[in-house]
């Protein structure tokens, strides 16, 4: 029988959501339109419309050593063109953000090629060739794993994921890169991810309501959602893994 990945254990809707976003065959639901130019502005690595600076000549113009791995692996567009390595970094609030660093890195590894995710407790960074990054960043920002209020695009000074929300439901940001327009209810970025002011605001849509966030969250949180201990199947799985890891040194036999 062919192996069929299960992606994640658990019997709660949080586990369901995790399985859903991790499965590369599941197309992430698009919930906002964001242009290529806006993505470039948000990241702040180059001016919109300018050429991609390169780190090396295109692969077609350089002599590559005879290597079986290079024959096996098709280079990404960015690697073919010799683009620089650039990054985008996200902060996800613990208050029912749709995604969080650990799952982010997993889903990116399942879905994207030629990139290096970095997972930390409060932030998650993805590094890859610049033109690949723009393509991936667009998917990450425009789909259901991004919320305008509870997810932040923050290259530096990421502090805020574990703090209480503001009165308007926005995640704390020392640099206030994104603000909620009280008249329209739309969140707009006024600074790029490294806190440099933008000439033109980038709108990322309205924040989702609490009901939607609770239903779509991939975070276990006993105070504002479902606690890890409420998921019996997940607890059983974690205990099994823990037990096997401890016993590993004694050559476990099942």
């Amino acid at each position: 029988m062919a192996y069929k990945p299960q992606f994640f254990p658990g019997s709660t809707h949080i586990a369901d959501n995790r399985r859903k976003v991790l499965d590369p065959n599941h197309k992430l639901e698009k919930i906002r339109d964001i242009s290529d130019k806006d993505i470039v502005l948000l990241m702040g690595h180059r001016a919109p419309g300018s050429a991609y600076p390169t780190a090396h000549p295109p692969l077609s113009e350089q002599q590559e050593p005879a290597c079986p791995i290079r024959k096996l692996v098709t280079p990404t567009d960015g690697a073919k063109a010799g683009d620089r390595i650039r990054y985008i970094q996200f902060t996800d609030s613990m208050y029912n953000a749709p995604c969080h660093p650990y799952i982010r890195s997993y889903l990116e590894s399942y879905r994207f090629r030629g990139m290096d995710p970095g997972t930390l407790s409060g932030r998650q960074i993805i590094e890859c060739r610049e033109r690949d990054l723009e393509k991936y960043a667009k998917e990450l920002v425009s789909t259901e794993i991004f919320d305008a209020a509870r997810t932040g695009i923050r290259g530096s000074t990421v502090h805020g994921h574990s703090l209480r929300l503001g009165e308007d439901g926005m995640m704390f940001d020392m640099m206030q890169r994104f603000v909620l327009d009280k008249k329209t209810g739309i969140v707009k970025y006024v600074k790029n991810q490294i806190s440099e002011p933008l000439d033109t605001e980038v709108k990322v849509g309205k924040p989702m309501d609490d009901k939607w966030l609770k239903a779509h969250s991939t975070i276990y949180h006993s105070l504002v959602g479902v606690g890890t201990r409420d998921d019996a199947e997940l607890v059983e799985y974690i205990q099994r893994i823990h037990s096997l890891r401890v016993k590993y040194g004694f050559m476990p036999k099942e």
């Binding site: 290259g155 000074t157 020392m174």
Partner: peptide
């Protein structure tokens, strides 16, 4: 949580930080 008037570090260090 502190809100500095000027960005204290990072690429935008020294720029004003309106909040």
């Amino acid at each position: 949580h502190r809100l500095p008037a000027i960005v204290p570090y990072g690429p935008a260090k020294g720029q004003l930080n309106p909040h």
